[in-house]
Design a protein around this nucleic acid. Sequence first.
DNA 1: TAGATTGTTAATCGATTAACAATC
DNA 2: TAGATTGTTAATCGATTAACAATC
Lengths: 210, 210
Amino acid sequence: MASTPKVPDIVIGRLPLYLRALNVLASQGRDIVSSQELADRLGCSSAQIRKDLAYFGGFGKQGAGYQIGYLQEQLRRILKVEGQWKMALVGAGDLGHALVHYGEFENNGFRIVAVFDNDPRKIGRRIGEFEVLDSKLLPHLISQKGIRIAIIAVPAHAAQEVADVLVQAGVRAILNYAPITIQVPPEVRVQYIDPVVHLQSMSYYLEPNE
Amino acid sequence: MASTPKVPDIVIGRLPLYLRALNVLASQGRDIVSSQELADRLGCSSAQIRKDLAYFGGFGKQGAGYQIGYLQEQLRRILKVEGQWKMALVGAGDLGHALVHYGEFENNGFRIVAVFDNDPRKIGRRIGEFEVLDSKLLPHLISQKGIRIAIIAVPAHAAQEVADVLVQAGVRAILNYAPITIQVPPEVRVQYIDPVVHLQSMSYYLEPNE
DNA sequence: TAGATTGTTAATCGATTAACAATC
DNA sequence: TAGATTGTTAATCGATTAACAATC
């Protein structure tokens, strides 16, 4: 409560990248890292890393660098991923399957706890450890389980309606895989994953083939 | 060649979002849109949209707005997605499956044309219309087919090695789903998709549960 | 101590916004 | 014409970088 007056969104967005790089270093058995080495790996400047971290306190030692384990702990605390956030997954298609089986959520603060779809052919089928539930159950289950995060993996035309129901049920953070901008109230965070958007922002730089 | 001296990366990164919004409007049968309406849908300012587009010319009509079909064409031309870029997919796991079946590539300038894996249990199996090929064939096929874009969908520990081979074979744009920053020469573009990074930059803003 | 690297300030750089003349 | 919205400039805002004193 003491410090942390108002950290820019763009800084928050980089902390997970720092944490990810630290995880890699830790898995290699490394103990200490300098802002310069971290910067080289991430392709940013060392000053940026030091300044970003300084919003939250002094985590390093002059002349030495940062204790990797300690900085991991601190970043996990700051990002609130020491525990596991329960997530609802909406959409049981190919992408939904891949997300249920995705192994990176577990050790990084998140866990899918329910899977929904509105397609009668999918409802009742199993995906991994889950039975696909009817979307109609969504509002009840989300509020009952106190779920605050949801992943939207439905077609574009259904995404806004799903988002509305999620928000109404109490969800406050949405990871949206549908290729469409959704409208939500200001207290709800949305992040987008759209491979086409990423690809198109690279094709600009490519020379036409042949 | 005449104009377009040096457009900031951040502007290029927004053009696909504009195009995506226009596609939605077009599918609703709309003909004309103002920068203000587009801005409302995207959650940005109208001035930003007008200024971004102005890097490439004047596409609108004062007093009227933008002809949607025309602006779509222009953005597709600018982003070089009028045709279809051939892509190699490396990694035939759950994510690879989802990507092969992903329907949004086709109409937006991209097409997977080959799928690779180095796991003997996966090589030779079919995914959709593709037979999974041995990664050893990667360099040969990429240069033979003139592939410039690749998607990395392998575990983190294998991503850097795959990237090295891809770059060596002539790939100039990489969409990386592995949760790790990869090192590539400056002439190669990389975009990252890591759901954990997106989720962690939202959990920061959530109040601890209960 | 000498060497190295942090934390932090000030300067630079770049992006966004406000505003309005141009003009459809 | 009157009304509306673009294209564009200038002003504001914010983020990044450079640099160095503090200090481990």
